[in-house]
Amino acid sequence: MTKPFRFGVVAPVLTDLPTWRDQVRRIAGSGYSTLLMPDVPRWQPAPAPALALAAAQADLRVGTWVYASPLRPAWTIAWEAHSLSVLTEGRFEMGIGTGRPGIEEELRDLAMPVTPPRERLAEVRRAVTMLRDLDGPDLRTPVVMAVRGPRARALAAEVADTVTIAAMPGDTRAEVTERVREFHGGRDVELALHVPVVGDDVAPFMAPPDLDPAALREADSLAILPDDPSAAADEIQRRREEIGYSYFVFGAGAADRLAPLVADLSGR
């Protein structure tokens, strides 16, 4: 069954607070469903307090995009996520993964242990299990998983409500499409697409700053959308029809430019 469109915006606090609060309210009024916060220590405020503040500014969903499991114990992730669900009255989505490429160097800088990928994935499972226990029978915090390898995809098929297949800059449309088609959830799992580049603009915290938009276009990558909103809308609809993506996540810098197509496609 084709799922309805929804759209999220990764909106880290990169400006003064009044400007950021205005941005949050503008995003909420433009048809976007979810405001998302990256998990990048020391570069911007921590996700939980920033999302709690965002949820108080406007009536929209909020979420992590995504918690890096090596950065904190599974119990801490679960408790924080459950607390955000309670404080936002069910408007929080817990995005979680095993960490960005290069997370090992970041862990060393923070004097934290560098664990192998299999152990990080086990921590993701523990965090989701503990979250379900904390939520109890009367609350269910949606879980969004960023995955790439076969073990991560298998876990996501088991426990996630939404899945985004993590892509590398050189991945082609055909390669990512094949990974999506190999993903068999056996449940009604929503497919999300991380889109860090619109035109020539690369979103902070969503991709390396030296990412080359021309190379993405040459590779026919799914990580980029055309700058023209009409062409972008056509491409978004193509990706839902051909691959099954229904949840699209952009950077805050493109949010105003894409707002008309978001409002149109989401029925706002």
Rank of each mutant, 00 (worst) to 15 (best):
P150T: 06
E178N: 10
L107I: 02
D171Y: 07
S230R: 07
L107G: 01
E241A: 15
L71R: 08
Y245C: 03
A219V: 00
G97N: 05
R179S: 12
P229S: 11
D171L: 01
T19F: 06
R268T: 13
R268M: 14
Y67R: 08
L139Y: 04
A111W: 14
T88D: 05
P260Q: 10
T98M: 09
F248G: 07
P137W: 09
A231Q: 15
R239A: 05
E158Q: 15
I224C: 11
D22P: 04
V128I: 14
A11M: 07
L193Y: 10
I236D: 00
L51C: 07
A219W: 00
A55G: 12
R125L: 11
L53Y: 04
P113K: 11
L71D: 08
V86S: 03
G185A: 15
P150V: 02
W20D: 03
D200Y: 04
L110W: 01
T177G: 14
L155I: 09
G170A: 15
P213G: 08
D228N: 12
R187D: 11
Q237T: 14
L35F: 07
T164L: 09
G253I: 06
P47R: 07
R100S: 12
V10R: 01
D212P: 06
S30R: 00
A146P: 01
P45L: 08
E106G: 06
L53R: 03
E119I: 11
T115E: 14
Q57F: 04
F205D: 06
R151G: 08
L60C: 12
A152L: 04
T98R: 07
V180R: 04
V66I: 14
T64M: 08
M130W: 13
A192R: 03
F248Y: 13
V86C: 06
E105N: 07
V262A: 05
Q23K: 08
A111S: 15
A156D: 13
R257Y: 00
P150M: 01
F92N: 01
D171W: 07
P18R: 14
M1T: 05
A48V: 04
D256Q: 15
R126Q: 15
R126C: 05
V143P: 03
Y245K: 05
R118S: 12
A254P: 03
M168N: 12
A160K: 01
G90K: 13
A215Y: 05
H82S: 09
R268F: 09
G31H: 00
E242G: 14
E182I: 01
S69Y: 05
T115V: 14
D210L: 15
P73Y: 05
A68Q: 09
G149D: 13
G63F: 00
A111N: 15
D212V: 13
P73K: 09
I96H: 07
A252V: 14
A54S: 08
W65E: 05
E242V: 15
S83N: 12
V147R: 04
D133Y: 10
V180H: 01
L36P: 02
F250E: 03
R238E: 10
A166F: 02
I96A: 07
P117I: 04
G185V: 09
L51M: 09
P101C: 11
E218C: 07
E106N: 02
A167V: 07
P260T: 11
P196C: 10
R153A: 13
T141M: 02
I103H: 02
A127R: 08
P204N: 14
L191N: 01
I103R: 00
L84R: 03
